[in-house]
Amino acid sequence: MEKHSVIIYILIAILTTNLIRVVPMALIKGPIRNRFVRSFLYYVPYVTLAVMTFPDMILVTPTPLPGVLAFAAGIIAAWLRLGLFAVAAICCAIVYLLSMLFAG
């Protein structure tokens, strides 16, 4: 087994991750005229965050139920525009309280 350095791993991760961020910005000069591309880029952020949230949110908890409830409560709280911090706190609180309830 060859020996790997943690520092080199970290440098690789930093370089690669930031390169990905910078390259499109460096290549795209003015506004994009193509309507399909504009529409595509409009939907990307919503879709990517949505697929990262579900089903991961219900897989993290030991049983799916607390995750499902936190997911539903998070959607309702966000729909009511409670703000990022409140929505995050509600999700954490639900999972914590349920785990206490069932562990106790």
């Binding site: 936190a70 729909w79 990022l84 999700c91």
Partner: peptide
């Protein structure tokens, strides 16, 4: 859960 709650707070409104 904080991470996912934050995501919901961004995409739902």
């Amino acid at each position: 859960m904080a991470l996912y709650g934050m995501f919901l707070g961004i995409i739902i409104p």
